[in-house]
Design a protein around this nucleic acid. Sequence first.
DNA 1: CGATTATGATTAA
DNA 2: TAATCCTAATCGC
Length: 264
Amino acid sequence: MPEGHTIHRIARDQNADLAGHRIAASAVQARFAAGAARLDGHVFEHAEAWGKHLFQWWEDLPEVLHVHLGLIGKWTRRASPPPLPVGEVRLRLEGPAHTWDLSGPMACALITPDEHDHIVAGLGPDPLRRDADPERFVANVGSSRRAIGALLMDQDVVAGIGNVYRAELLNIVGIDPRREGRALTRDEVDRLWAETVRQLRLGVKRNKIVTMRTDELVRPVSRLRPGEGRYVYHQEACGRCGTPVVDHRIGGRRISSCPTCQPA
DNA sequence: CGATTATGATTAA
DNA sequence: TAATCCTAATCGC
């Protein structure tokens, strides 16, 4: 379930649970046993999110833990002491009150601070970070002949947006995903960035992607079922005007849009 | 019980 | 563009 909002929320929650505490680290899977052994018994300093990347700093360790969840990776938070691990667990971090289990990540490795800097340097501005520079986003989009639907998924252009948010953001701002980046007006790009910041912040707060306005929801956010609370992603008709959505394949993934709200 | 699917990204062709 | 990796839930038979 990971787009940028998920990773930022995890960083925040791990900081609350683990920062300043000595951690028992272990691994069920042999593939990260050595890494877990290296972390075991050290004090967790802090976690940092950059787009969809999570970095953890540890006291008295020169390396940084780098985790990228990919499509299916998950961090599961449990009360300490935790039950025996269920399923595939790449890494378990046991803190005083809460334990975090990592499964199915695309990347989980100890890297050097230089490698960390290199990863961060290759990312576009992250709308969830206060130091994000919107002008970089404007420049990246405005200079490209690629479709805006592809640009939003490209982490070099803007870091943290995934397949759900790109569809929802373009619907909300009223932009057809097939339009060239350089064909967008300055005002459209500005509104796209502003809406991205607003939606991802809401996502962190709710720990869930709910793009639909509260007054349009059929039930409270807390009781939404999966897939509800969105305008076009996995919807048959546009949640704003009722027009049947149309599907495109952009950037190798499916994206739905509303022909009425998002004219070509 | 096997096939399918998923909010990701890289590599090869 | 297709194949590939990683895991678990869901769906059809």
